[in-house]
Design a protein around this nucleic acid. Structure first.
Ligand code: FES
Ligand code: FES
Lengths: 149, 149
DNA sequence: ACAAAAAAAGACAATTATATCTGTTTATAT
DNA sequence: ATATAAACAGATATAATTGTCTTTTTTTGT
């Protein structure tokens, strides 16, 4: 559903939400290893995210990426907007121009409620919320199922 | 969500379900015009569908594509399998290897119910079912909102 | 001040998805 | 029988996505 790029981005942010803060920055190399994602590609993505203030970074030795307090208040929707754009979720599933209850396509009513639900969750829950749940209930964000300390 | 290819394919099949039968075949040109989709690309797709017996065709003058009785008993799931493959629907939304309630990713529980519902609709409802609904309730399958006679 | 470490920036390469073009085969209508 | 209309098949073209490589800039620790 999402592009690889977007999946990497979201997982990185959640990873940072759990493992970093302004006194503990993490480099691309480490992040890429933990998430088992291509390092230079991830670097690009983090730079895009950084431009939109979805992640924070400092250069130089002992620098790296982290999430500031304000970064934690963003939604995953913001990330999707930043990397993929949100057409997939707002436009018609069958590729017709508009999507609405008035002029529905054949699959509209099987897909629409769902879209609503996803949109809601992705827009209303903050990264902080997701991080809490991950810590509390132990969700996976990497293939290696690393510990959530 | 679906590729363009798959969207064109599904819409073509639904179009044929409504407008064709074994005594009334329709050529690619006509279909492409009605659906406003790229003609040669659609031709390729119809050939793929034809190989898997999802559409029927005859060559030569006054030939074209149509849906046989048995074609009408297929599901849209069959079409998705044929064109895109079904990974998008069965695999993890975040790109992790497996998807299940035991080792869920952070978005699993917002996405999973939806997946179920869609899967169900796409697998259990036949093309004939969809065609009925389109005729009865007037769903759009083209941008031009063509009449459903 | 200086060296090293890390992000940032930009050019490049490979793969896949999308789309087109050309020619061949087959069935139909005359 | 023959011309024609259509599907069928295969090669090619374009664009987007995914991924890599190299260089530059900034920051920190010594
Ligand atoms: S009109 Fe197609 S999904 Fe809403
Ligand atoms: S585990 Fe990710 S969607 Fe199910």
């Amino acid at each position: 559903m999402l592009s690889n790029a977007c999946k990497y981005a979201i997982r990185s942010i959640l990873y940072l939400a759990i493992h970093s803060d302004d006194s503990k920055k993490i480099g691309v190399k480490k992040i890429a290893e933990e998430l088992e994602s291509p390092q230079p590609f991830l670097a690009k993505l983090l730079q895009q995210l950084s431009k939109k203030n979805l992640v924070s970074s400092v250069k130089g030795p002992s620098g790296g990426f982290y999430l500031s307090k304000s970064n934690l208040e963003n939604s995953v929707w913001n990330t999707i907007e930043c990397i993929d754009g949100t057409d997939k979720f707002t436009k018609c599933f069958m590729g017709l121009s508009s999507c609405g209850d008035e002029n529905p396509c054949p699959v509209h009513f099987t897909v629409a409620p769902f879209k609503q639900k996803i949109l809601h969750d992705f827009k209303d829950r903050t990264i902080r919320d997701f991080a809490e749940e991950i810590k509390l209930k132990g969700r996976r964000i990497s293939l290696k199922d690393f510990e959530v300390t």
